[in-house]
Nucleic acid binder design. Structure first.
Lengths: 189, 189
DNA sequence: TAAAAACGATAACAAATGTTTAGATTTTGA
DNA sequence: TCAAAATCTAAACATTTGTTATCGTTTTTA
C-alpha cells in the first residue's frame, strides 16, 4: 500500500487520519497472467493502482480486430476512465501480461474522497488533468512521430517494454501490423 | 456574457456575487475571419468561450504539412489546454473561420476561481473531465468508424459544418487528403 | 520435459491511400 | 464588380501498408 499512498501524496496533501479512512475503502487484489482485470460491457466502477506487473488495454473493433491501445506498469493507475466518469459500459479488456498485484479503489472510495478529503476535488481535478495531458501527448505523437520513431522512443514511456510485451502487441499499440513493424525494423537498422 | 454564465452554471452552482467577481477578470474580444486567436510558441494563458462564429485548431507537422485537428463553435470553450495546464509552449494555431465574438478568460480569472469560488476546484475537475471524455471519444471513433462514416456523422458533433468549413479542412480533420475524401464521396453515393 | 502454442521474419501479392496535375466553378476581397 | 484566390473533382501514377502463407525458433503449459 505504501507505493499507493506515495502516489497520492505526490498529488495532494493528505493527513494520516484521512489516509487511513481512504484505505478502509480499498483492498488488494492479485491477477494471474492472461486473466482480465476488467472486461467490456460492464460499467467501470473501480480504479486499479498497479504495484507489480504490467497490463494492456484491448479493444475489439467492428471487424473483430483486436487493438492494444495502452500499457500500464507499476505505480500507475488504470481504469476505463471514460466509463467510470460517464457510467457507461466499458469497451476495454484490461489484461494482465504478467501476474499483477493491484490496489483496488472502488467508486465509493473515490466518491468518499471527493466529499470528505480536504483536497478531494483538487485530487479529482489533478487526476483528470493528468489523464488529459497523457491522452493529448499520445495524439500529438501521432502527428509528429512516425511509427519507427515511436517504436524507438517507446521505452521513454514504458521502460523495458520490449522485454515485457511481445512485438505484435507493440505494433498494434503503434497502429501498424506486426508484419509491417518487422519490415520497418529491417529497413532502418 | 449571458451564454458564458449559462455554460458555467451548467457545471457548478455559482452565486450572483461570485459571478460578478469572476466576470471582472474576463473581457470580450472580436476576431475577423482568417485571423488567429492564438499562435504556436507562446504559453497558452487564456481560455476562450466562443459566443459567435467558428474556429479551427491547426497543427503543422515536421514535414510542414498542416493538419486541422479540431473545430470549435458557439457556446464552446477553446484553448490549448495542455499548454495551459503545463505552462509549455502551445503548438496550435487557433484560426477564425468566420468572424468570431469570444469571452476571454485569462489565467488569473481561472486561478482566482480555483481559490475563491466555493466550487472552484470542482469546476476545474469537471472541465478537465469533460475534455478527457471528449478526447477519448475522438480516439474511439478512429477505431470504430471509417473516414466515410465519420464524414457522414460529423454534423452530430459540429452541426452545419459542411456549410461552415471547406471540405479540405474536414478531410484533414478526418485524417485523409481532400482528394481521397472526394473519391470516397463519389464511390459511396 | 515434451507437445502445443505463440512468436518473429520473410516473400509475394493485393488493396488502400497519397501525389501531382489539370480544369471548371465558386468565393473572396479590394 | 471584377480579378485573384480558393475550392472541388478527376485521372494517372506512385507509394505505403495490409493480407496471407510459410518456416524456423522460442515460450508456455500440461
Amino acid at each position: 500500500m505504501e507505493q499507493f499512498i506515495r502516489a497520492i501524496r505526490q498529488m495532494i496533501s493528505i493527513s494520516d487520519t484521512e489516509t487511513d479512512s481512504l484505505l478502509g475503502y480499498c483492498y488488494l487484489k492479485s491477477f494471474s497472467r492472461k486473466t482480465y482485470l476488467s472486461t467490456p460491457g460492464k460499467i467501470c466502477n473501480e480504479v486499479f493502482f498497479i504495484t507489480k506487473g504490467i497490463s494492456r488495454n484491448i479493444l475489439i473493433d467492428n471487424e473483430g480486430v483486436e487493438h492494444t491501445t495502452n500499457f500500464t506498469i507499476e505505480n500507475q493507475f488504470i481504469a476505463d476512465y471514460a466509463s467510470f466518469l460517464q457510467k457507461t459500459p466499458s469497451i476495454y479488456y484490461l489484461q494482465a501480461l504478467e501476474s499483477i498485484e493491484a490496489v483496488v479503489m472502488p467508486r465509493e472510495a473515490i466518491e468518499w474522497g471527493y466529499h470528505n478529503l480536504k483536497q478531494g476535488d483538487r485530487l479529482g481535478r489533478l487526476i483528470a488533468e493528468y489523464y488529459f495531458v497523457y491522452h493529448d501527448n499520445q495524439i500529438r505523437k501521432q502527428y509528429f512521430e512516425t511509427p519507427q520513431q515511436r517504436y524507438e522512443t517507446i521505452t521513454q514511456v514504458f521502460p523495458d517494454i520490449h522485454n515485457r510485451a511481445p512485438q505484435h502487441m507493440i505494433a498494434s499499440y503503434l497502429g501498424i501490423t506486426s508484419v509491417h513493424l518487422s519490415r520497418l525494423k529491417r529497413t532502418y537498422v
